[in-house]
């Protein structure tokens, strides 16, 4: 594939991605949305981020997708730490340490 073809393809993906990110902000910011929709939109963040976390853990592109035991240990430790501390840096440090410990043991 030529450099020009791949460059134009990347540019095209970029433009459509911008449209997906900005389209509804630009179209709806001045609109009066129905109450039920505004209420439903509040659940976009937990629903998408919950699903996104699963794809990050289970890696759908890998040959053997799924959750390994060390990964499960890391998540089970990180969850309560995040809940208790409300601090991402602490969550990352403790969660990764538990993950590495479980990796070393298993």
């Amino acid at each position: 594939m030529s450099v020009t073809t791949t460059f134009l393809a990347a540019l095209f993906v970029g433009i459509v991605t911008y449209a997906m990110r900005g389209g509804l902000i630009l179209a709806l910011a001045d609109a009066e949305l129905p109450t039920w929709l505004v209420r439903a939109l509040r659940y976009v963040a937990p629903a998408v981020l919950g699903a996104l976390t699963v794809t990050l853990v289970a890696d759908p592109d890998a040959v053997n997708r799924g959750v390994t035991l060390p990964e499960l240990v890391g998540l089970l430790v990180a969850g309560p730490v995040a809940w208790k501390t409300k601090n991402l840096a602490v969550t990352l440090a403790v969660g990764m340490s538990a993950f590495w410990l479980a990796l070393a043991v298993s």
Binding site: Y43, P46, L49, G50, T53, L56, G74, A82, G95
Partner: peptide, 22 residues
């Protein structure tokens, strides 16, 4: 990143419907 997003999900849920959505 998986750990980070786990944390973000937990910070983001403020009520029971939020927990159910996640």
């Amino acid at each position: 990143p998986a750990i980070m997003f786990t944390g973000l999900v937990i910070f983001g849920v403020t009520n029971r419907p939020g927990v159910i959505a996640a």
